[in-house]
């Protein structure tokens, strides 16, 4: 990926002018970023290396590499239910993200392409959710979910996650739509397409790039969501990974190396997803400019 476009001639010219100062600043810049990279990565690497030890070895030398590799820590962590938690996370994330994207698409379409009474009000109504702390809604939400009889089900995580993700995805998609040319839509309308037809056959295909980005960002948010899962889920069979990892650590108490193995297993899906889809991630960030 090349986000950076450089003009080689300028660069060459610049190099010549202050070559020595350049050498030094380059040295310090690299040094700084190498240190920062170590700070960013080493905690996980430390957990990873220790996850192969026995608890006693962890107590004795947590710096060193394991002498023999205790893969059984991973087997135990897996057997204890990490797999189940990850599966639940996949279910909740995929469904919540898709519902959210569908609703956001429609809302963004209306807000970006129609003139109607109350448009600004509704825009603020939806975007206002960006600023609200979910904690404020926690206790009433809890009672609403109970009344709807969906407490302690997947839906108890999916619906609040959709509601609190919707403002951002709507904002993201709407911004993108505002930048799209109207030619295709106008052509489709002349051909007699209904609003739904325009939406489905013109807008959705044009929005694919931003949809991918929005999905990834939203997936990351839902995947990592903690408070709703903590409050609205009791059954171990329904717990998502962030919560499951916590009960896992609680239940295993002092078996730290197994807990560490669980941490690593839990961290891998998102790391892999990110490394595979950096481009969509960064485009989404660039378009949204907002953090979760």
């Amino acid at each position: 990926m090349s986000l950076v476009s450089t003009s080689e001639s300028v660069r060459a010219d610049y190099f010549q002018r202050s070559a020595r100062a350049r050498q030094w600043s380059r040295f310090f810049a690299y040094l700084l970023f190498i240190i920062l990279t170590i700070v960013a990565l080493y905690p996980l690497i430390w957990v990873a290396t220790n996850s192969f030890k026995t608890d006693l070895q962890l107590f004795e030398h947590s710096w060193s590499l394991p002498k023999e590799w205790h893969w059984e820590n991973y087997a135990r962590a897996w057997k204890f239910g990490i797999a189940k938690y990850i599966l639940n996370s996949v279910i909740v994330t995929v469904i919540a993200v898709l519902i959210n994207i569908a609703i956001s698409m429609m809302a963004a379409f209306a807000l970006a392409r129609y003139q109607f009474r109350g448009r600004n009000l509704l825009l603020y109504f939806i975007l206002g959710g960006l600023m609200l702390a979910p904690e404020v809604s926690l206790i009433p939400l809890f009672r609403i979910l109970t009344t709807l009889k969906i407490y302690d089900t997947y839906l108890a995580m999916i619906l609040p996650n959709v509601a609190f993700g919707l403002p951002f995805t709507t904002f993201l998609i709407r911004s993108y739509m505002l930048g799209l040319p109207r030619d295709y839509e106008e052509a489709a309308v002349i051909d007699g397409a209904s609003p739904l037809g325009v939406f489905w056959h013109v807008i959705v295909p044009l929005c694919r790039p931003i949809l991918a980005s929005a999905m990834l960002l939203d997936a990351m948010r839902v995947w990592n969501e903690f408070m709703f899962a903590l409050t609205f889920i009791v059954s171990d069979n329904l717990k998502t990974m962030p919560l499951g990892l916590m009960s896992f650590a609680g239940a295993l108490r002092e078996q730290w190396t197994v807990v560490m193995a669980g941490i690593i297993i839990s961290a891998i899906p998102m790391i892999v997803l990110y490394l595979l889809t950096q481009k969509q991630f960064i485009r989404g960030l660039a378009a949204g400019g907002i953090k979760g």
Binding site: L87, N88, V90, I91, I95, K149, D152, T153, Y154, S235, N237, L238
Partner: peptide
């Protein structure tokens, strides 16, 4: 998965 995972509440 969601369909089969749902418990008889």
């Amino acid at each position: 998965l969601a369909a089969c995972g749902q418990q008889p509440s």
